[in-house]
């Protein structure tokens, strides 16, 4: 369609004519998109790592209060014999109460008021990193749960909760910063397109007068915004990818010792495209808004 060719030609010409401002606007979009997409990258990878760990990194075997030391010994023997545990630790009822008091200082009054110690004794098991999530762990957990004197086997989620909590804070903060940056970037793009609009004010007035269809009047500005936003976000994804590759190469030993090497992944193509499309949409919306004028 002739309107599209016109819009593309005029939009690109305008970007080139004001290439310094265009580069500035693109950089602003790129920075905002970089913050948002690195946030996506970090949280998606951490989530994947955590979901691996949370199923199997640690678990606790809770004992009934009447469990004998033989029964506890049988539990410990089963853990040791399974070959999946990196470490185990017995936590007595007294230890558990002390730990509760330490972790929940604000509930001291409640703890003091307790007539008897409600906390069960337990055996805490840390799984070897290469066995995490394996079927062997699940078998062990099933065996332990049926042993006499065992009340329950539970994955200990306390530290995972803490990490997840921290993660969601980071995510929220990052999202706010990213969105604020995106808003600032959108204003920059709008300002640059406004320059183009002002420079063509006479032509635009003429286009209205002679009855040019709206795709001719507003199309160039929408194209300009679309290209600035899309290219900016594309640059951000590219930079992020390069950074990801570099970090990967740099920290290979560390990552491997964390068991993260196979889990870490760059943004899926779908998400990366979404970031680029998002940038393009923000830019196009700026072009649409700036050229919004009737006469």
């Amino acid at each position: 369609m002739s309107g599209i060719r016109f819009a593309l030609r005029e939009g690109f010409a305008s970007i080139w004519r004001r290439r310094t401002s265009s580069a500035l606007a693109m950089t602003a979009i790129a920075l905002a998109a970089l913050v948002l997409s690195s946030l996506l990258l970090v949280t998606s990878n951490l989530e994947r790592l955590l979901s691996g760990w949370s199923t199997a990194a640690e678990f606790s075997v809770y004992l009934v209060d009447t469990a004998t030391s033989d029964q506890r010994g049988a539990v410990e023997a089963a853990v040791d014999g399974s070959g999946v545990a990196a470490r185990r630790e017995y936590v007595s009822k007294v230890d558990a109460l002390a730990r509760f008091k330490r972790d929940n200082a604000e509930l001291e009054a409640l703890a003091a008021a307790l007539q008897s110690n409600p906390f069960p004794a337990s055996v805490e098991v840390q799984v070897q990193s290469e066995k995490q999530g394996s079927a062997e762990v699940e078998v062990l957990v099933a065996v332990l749960a049926k042993l006499p004197g065992v009340a329950d086997v539970r994955y200990d989620r306390e530290w995972i909760r803490r990490v997840t909590g921290g993660l969601s804070m980071v995510r929220r903060l990052g999202l706010i910063i990213g969105l604020v940056m995106m808003a600032a970037a959108a204003l920059t793009v709008a300002a640059v397109i406004r320059l183009a609009f002002d420079a063509r004010r006479e032509e635009i007035r003429l286009m209205y007068l002679v009855g040019a269809p709206y795709r001719f009047i507003r199309g160039p500005f929408i194209v300009e915004g679309l290209v600035l936003g899309g290219l900016g976000a594309g640059v951000a994804v590219l930079v992020l990818w390069l950074g990801f590759r570099a970090a990967f190469a740099w920290w290979t030993p560390t990552l491997s010792s964390l068991g993260a090497l196979e889990v870490l992944r760059f943004l899926p193509v779908y998400t990366a495209s979404l970031v680029v499309v998002g940038g393009a949409v923000v830019g196009a919306a700026c072009g649409f808004a700036v050229s919004r004028r009737t006469s």
Binding site: L209, V210, G211, Y214
Partner: peptide, 14 residues
């Protein structure tokens, strides 16, 4: 409508 105004103006020279 706005689009019709443009169409209408195409029939008029100024």
């Amino acid at each position: 409508s706005k689009a019709q105004i443009q169409e209408y103006r195409r029939g008029i020279g100024f």
